[in-house]
Design a protein around this nucleic acid. Structure first.
Length: 499
RNA sequence: GCCCCCAUCGUCUAGAGGCCUAGGACGCCACCCUUUCAAGGUGGAGAUCACCGGUUCGAAUCCGGUUGGGGGCACCA
């Protein structure tokens, strides 16, 4: 039945621009991409924009941009939204292939495999509700199949436009799924479904089958949510006289409650992850392992390595919960694996423009180990761009007083630190020198270093948690550090007066 | 309701009849390192392999059933 063995391997991803690139679509795209890479096949991108009402160019652009961002590239298909399509089967946008679908619909009509249906949405709705109330399967009752010529003439006269329904052959469909093995389905349970709307636009189940044939797709790798739709597609393939591709249904990505991952319960837009500073390498690595593993205990892979290792036989059957904690961990791993120069480049968009490139490169090593997402850099480096007044407003006098000490003690400590730092030459205002001097101050005071560093950190950064203190001070520069210590001194002195 | 698919630590997974008194990773806990937070190191808790029956000398692995979960049944894709 299927003749894929002799045909060169061709797979496709078929996103619908009815929303931004979805995590699930990205993962399905990745699996197709890896499959093509692994077998030296051709990878096609086809835009499924038959739902004109919900499709937009912006969303198409989002899909293309983010696929590129992930490193997923295709051999055929649109390279940019509304741009020129590349490949022998162009165009690759369904909205530009309408004549083809119309011709195939006409063929089906002519052979009697499809028929016109004049039922209105309201009528269909009424039938469906009645079936549901009687606990019957909600499917088309075949009314328009039994119409007389007079009935048809009557509808025409009323100005009603017919949709086209596929007459589902009463047969049992069997196919050998690449991932699930033998699957059997009785198509008698199916109602005749609409393949062309009353307005003449074709529907998904119809166009997907036509395009997969015309684009010579040999392997259809898609989400498990399409498993139950496959018998429809096979019936259509047979009626149209097409070659049957191999089907492989990959497990779904799930919300924490194990339902199909949705916008409602999870963050599903790739753009959102990108904006938060997830690295495409991390996302790809993470997504690849949602439903697949190389069969070993290795778990960090580049896209190229995944292409070498990926095979359908190791794809799981059960759905996989999207574990954000694990993604965070992987993102950290990838961030830390970058050189400072590489990281600085990626950090640039997440840091204020007032920080110059030199500044970005200098903070990078200070925050590298602390980043889960690139966007975390904003908060981690805020103390650098905030004014001395803003920093001072972030903490109270109590943050300057170590346990067991009085505000007066704290004031004395800060005053000493101020003097010591003032004496430092500009060239000596460096992390290691600063640390040495500050330790000496603590020692002279008879304080534990930590008890002295804590207030100093509050004064300098306004926070109890910050990048390494002395590196931060070096970056800030002597003048600003001294100004902040002065502000702290004012605060704690006022406190000392009160008490 | 009907049909289809699925089932190993909380999560992602290793496992393809004896290598499994079930391995790794994330998360969690403890300790170490340490100027905070991280990162790193070490150790720990955590799965009677959903349940019941069968096949077999032997089953997490094969078969059947049960239960549970998910998906599909649109003039959405």
């Amino acid at each position: 039945m299927s003749d894929t063995s002799e045909r060169p391997i061709r797979v496709r991803m078929a996103p619908s621009p009815t929303g931004p690139l979805h995590i699930g679509t990205a993962r399905t795209s990745l699996y197709n991409f890896l499959f093509a890479r692994h077998h030296g096949g051709t990878y096609v991108l086809r835009i499924e924009d038959t739902d004109l009402a919900r499709s937009t160019v912006e969303q198409e652009q989002d899909i293309i941009d983010n696929l590129h961002w992930l490193g997923i590239t295709w051999d055929e298909g649109p390279q940019v939204a509304r741009g020129d399509d590349i490949g022998p089967f162009a165009p690759y946008r369904q909205s530009m292939r309408l004549d083809l679908y119309a011709a195939e619909a006409a063929r089906l009509l002519e052979s009697g495999a499809a028929y016109h249906c004049w039922c209105t949405p309201e009528e269909l709705d009424a039938v469906r509700r009645e079936q549901e109330s009687k606990k019957e399967a909600p499917r088309y009752n075949g009314r328009c199949l039994r119409l007389t010529d007079a009935d048809r003439a009557q509808f025409e006269a009323e100005g009603r436009r017919p949709a086209i329904r596929f007459r589902v052959p009463p047969e049992t469909i069997r196919f050998d799924d690449l991932i699930r093995g033998e699957v059997e389905f009785d198509n008698r349970l199916l109602g005749d479904f609409v393949i062309v709307r009353a307005d003449g636009s074709p529907l998904y189940h119809f166009v997907v089958v036509i395009d997969d044939e015309k684009m010579a797709i040999t392997h259809v790798i898609r989400g498990e949510d399409h498993l139950s739709n496959t018998p429809k597609h096979i019936a259509l393939i047979e009626s149209l006289g097409y070659r049957q591709p191999r089907f492989g249904h990959i497990p779904l990505i799930l919300n924490a409650d194990r339902s199909k991952m949705s916008k409602r319960k999870s963050q599903t837009a790739i753009t959102a992850y990108r904006e938060q500073g997830y690295l495409p390498e991390a996302l790809v690595n993470f997504l690849a392992f949602l439903g697949w593993s190389p069969g070993t205990e290795e778990e960090i892979f580049t896209l190229d390595e995944l292409g070498q290792r990926f095979d359908l036989s190791h794809v799981h059957k059960a759905g996989a919960v999207f574990d954000a904690d694990r993604l965070d961990y992987l993102n950290g791993v990838y961030i830390r694996s970058l050189t400072d120069e590489q990281l600085a480049l990626r950090l640039r968009p997440f840091l204020p423009e007032t920080l110059d490139d030199e500044g970005v490169l200098r903070v990078t090593p200070l925050i590298k180990e602390r980043l889960v997402r690139l966007a975390d850099a904003t908060e981690l480096t805020a103390f650098l761009v905030e004014s001395d007044e803003q920093v001072a407003a972030l903490y109270g006098a109590d943050a300057l007083v170590p346990k067991g000490r009085t505000p007066a003690d704290a004031a004395r400590a800060l005053a000493i630190a101020r003097d010591v730092l003032t004496q430092l030459a500009d060239g000596d205002f460096a992390a290691d020198v600063l640390e040495g001097r500050c330790r000496a101050v603590a020692e002279g005071l008879g304080w534990k270093p930590g008890d002295f560093f804590r207030p100093l950190r509050a004064a300098v950064t306004g926070r109890s948690v910050s990048p390494p203190l002395f590196g931060s001070m070096e970056l800030l520069g002597r003048d600003r550090v001294l100004a902040r210590i002065d502000a702290a001194l004012g605060k704690v002195s006022a406190e000392a007066q009160v008490t």
